[in-house]
C-alpha cells in the first residue's frame, strides 16, 4: 500500500502538468491539443476497430522479440562466459556490432528478409539481446573458482555443474539484463512499426502524424507511455519475486 502511495506521489508532477495544459492551454491549438481531446481520438480508433488489433500487434511483437533476445542472449552469454578462448576472439567483433545503432540495420534486414515478422523480431532482438548477453557473461565470470572446486569435489558432471551451479548463479544477472533490454525493445518495436507502417501502435502514430491528427498522436503517445511504464514495473515485480531466494547483493540494480 505504501509503495502504491509512493508511486502515486511520483506521478504528481505529470498530473499537474497535464492539468495545467488542460486548463491554461489554447483549446483550439492544432499542434498542442488539450489532453481532454486525446481520449476521444483514441475512442474513434477503438470504434473503427483499429486500436486493439494495433495494441495487440505491438505488445506481441515486444513480447516475442524480448523472449527471443533473452534466449539468444542467455545462451550466447553462457557459451562466451564459460569458454574463455571464445570470449577472447569474439570481443572485437562484439564491440563493433554493439556500436551499431539498432535502427540502422532495418534497411539491411528488410533487404534480406522483406516486410516479415521474422525481420521485425530480428531487428528488435538484435537491439535487445546485448544487455542480456553482456550481463550473463558478467554473471558467469563472477562465479568464484571455489564454487567450481566444490562442484568438482562433489564429482558433479559437466551437465550437473551447468544446471546446478552456473545457471542458477547467473539468474540475477539474466534478470538484470532483461530489465535493461525491456525498454530498448519497446523503443525499437515502435521504430520498426513506424518504418514499415504495416501494423501496431507505431504505424497508427505515423498515420495520425501524416493526417495532422495531433490529438491522436498525443493520445497514442500517452498509451505507449503507460504501457512502457507498466511493463517495466511488472517485470521489476516479477524479478523481485524470483530473487527472494538470492542474497540481497545479487539483486542490486
Amino acid at each position: 500500500m505504501l509503495a502504491l502511495a509512493n508511486a502515486a506521489k511520483g506521478f504528481l508532477p505529470l498530473v499537474i502538468a497535464i492539468g495545467v495544459w488542460q486548463y491554461a492551454g489554447d483549446k483550439e491549438s492544432a499542434l498542442f491539443p488539450p489532453p481532454a481531446t486525446w481520449w476521444p481520438a483514441i475512442a474513434d480508433l477503438i470504434a473503427a476497430d483499429t486500436f486493439f488489433p494495433a495494441l495487440n500487434a505491438t505488445l506481441s511483437l515486444i513480447g516475442l522479440s524480448l523472449a527471443a533476445a533473452s534466449l539468444v542472449g542467455f545462451v550466447l552469454g553462457l557459451v562466451i562466459g564459460t569458454l574463455p578462448g571464445f570470449r577472447h576472439w569474439t570481443s572485437l567483433v562484439l564491440e563493433y556490432l554493439r556500436a551499431l545503432p539498432p535502427p540502422v540495420i532495418i534497411p539491411l534486414a528488410v533487404l534480406l528478409l522483406g516486410y516479415t515478422m521474422t525481420m521485425k523480431v530480428s531487428v528488435i532482438a538484435f537491439a535487445a539481446f546485448w544487455p542480456v548477453m553482456l550481463n550473463t557473461i558478467a554473471g558467469v565470470s563472477q562465479i568464484h573458482n571455489l564454487t567450481f572446486d566444490v562442484a568438482r569435489s562433489l564429482r558433479m558432471t559437466w551437465f550437473e555443474t551447468l544446471s546446478k551451479v552456473v545457471l542458477p548463479a547467473t539468474i540475477p544477472s539474466l534478470l538484470l539484463g532483461i530489465r535493461i533490454a525491456l525498454p530498448q525493445s519497446v523503443v525499437v518495436t515502435l521504430v520498426v512499426e513506424m518504418f514499415t507502417g504495416e501494423s501496431g501502435i507505431g504505424s497508427l502514430m505515423i498515420a495520425a502524424q501524416r493526417n495532422f491528427n495531433a490529438a491522436e498522436v498525443f493520445g497514442l503517445l500517452a498509451v505507449m507511455g503507460l504501457f512502457g511504464y507498466g511493463l517495466t514495473a511488472a517485470f521489476s515485480g516479477l524479478e523481485r519475486a524470483i530473487l527472494r531466494r538470492w542474497p540481497l547483493s545479487a539483486s542490486a540494480s
Binding site: 568464484h144 571455489l146 566444490v150 569435489s153 562433489l154 538470492w246
Partner: peptide, 30 residues
C-alpha cells in the same frame, strides 16, 4: 581426481555454499 568418500570443507563458506539453495538443499547437493 576427487574420490568418492573424501569430503572437503573449505575456509570460504560463502562461496562454497550455493546461496540460492536452502540449507537442506545445500546439504543434499552431493
Amino acid at each position: 581426481g576427487p574420490a568418492n568418500d573424501v569430503a572437503i570443507v573449505f575456509q570460504d563458506y560463502s562461496n562454497a555454499l550455493l546461496q540460492w539453495r536452502t540449507v537442506g538443499r545445500n546439504v543434499a547437493l552431493g
